[in-house]
């Protein structure tokens, strides 16, 4: 019996030893897995934006796009992200919403800007979406929702029509990520904001305030309905700030912020 147990132990050791040894090789590089998934993401981003831009109206007014761009640039530069990689779109809509598409598309709705009481609130939501982009949550969510095989078939010119892409784009813009991914994005957003010298507390206030709104007023608050448990999340952010000291500096001049709010309300 002892002999058999010893032999089993040796077999298990050989198996794990071989597995451990082989996992030291960078197979992803050898099989170009990362390159392939990057191409899939690029193609998906292109397809999504193509379909989405047909149904929505993108704001081209520089008085609106430039201040939003400045906030994003500040967040990117302070955190060492390549700003050029992120495609920012401001969309005219009554929905209070912001979301990310594959291949680093960041979409902000005008009503979100109108509902933000300060640039820090808007920057907070943008930092949260930026975290989803940087942490690859967008592709993780899509793979979970529709499966890797479906995504590859769409990007390689499979059977998917524009309806399928449209419904997938809707999934990204109007359904929540996993609670763990949301929580990770919140905490990352706080880090990004502190690095960019933007106060993270208003982001928590924004969550708390929108979480408190009456149900009838909720119908346009898409960002909140897709980001549930706002109150708990707000409390968690406040908790994480406890005892932290950080500098803050305004990104936009007060009049630029006011003008932006005025323009989006038009």
């Amino acid at each position: 019996m002892k002999k058999v147990l010893f032999q089993i132990l040796v077999l298990v050791a050989v198996f794990y030893g071989m597995w451990f040894g082989l996992s030291k090789v960078d197979w992803l590089k050898i099989f170009k897995v990362e390159q392939a998934s990057k191409k899939t993401e690029e193609k998906l981003g292109e397809l999504f934006w193509e379909v989405f831009s047909k149904t929505e109206k993108e704001v081209k007014n520089k008085k609106v796009t430039l201040p939003v761009d400045s906030l994003l640039t500040k967040l990117c530069e302070a955190n060492g992200f390549d700003r050029k990689e992120i495609k920012l779109h401001v969309i005219e809509s009554d929905d209070v919403n912001a979301f990310a598409f594959p291949n680093k598309h960041l979409v902000v709705f005008t009503s979100l800007i109108a509902d933000s009481r300060s640039e820090a609130e808007l920057a907070g939501v943008m930092a949260h979406e930026l975290a989803h982009i940087q942490k690859n949550h967008v592709m993780k969510k899509l793979i979970k929702e529709v499966g890797l095989s479906a995504l590859i078939s769409i990007t390689t010119g499979g059977s998917a029509g524009s309806e399928v892409i449209k419904s997938m784009a809707k999934t990204l813009s109007s359904t929540a990520y996993d609670r763990s991914l949301e929580s990770e994005a919140d905490m990352k957003a706080v880090d990004y904001l502190i690095e960019a010298k933007i106060d993270p507390a208003p982001f928590a206030d924004f969550l708390a305030r929108l979480g408190k709104d009456e149900p009838e007023e909720m119908k346009h608050l898409t960002w909140i309905s897709t980001h549930p448990e706002s109150k708990e999340r707000s409390e968690k952010i406040i908790e994480s700030l406890d005892g932290l000291t950080y500098d803050t500096q305004p990104v936009l001049a007060p009049e630029t912020w006011e003008l932006l709010k005025e323009k989006v309300k038009e």
Partner: peptide
């Protein structure tokens, strides 16, 4: 990997090679 958000890693490929050898 196919149906959830789990991703292909070097560890997975190494496991598959080991499994094939066995």
């Amino acid at each position: 990997i196919i149906f959830t958000s789990e991703q292909i890693t070097s560890s997975y490929i190494a496991y598959m090679f080991t499994a094939i050898v066995f």
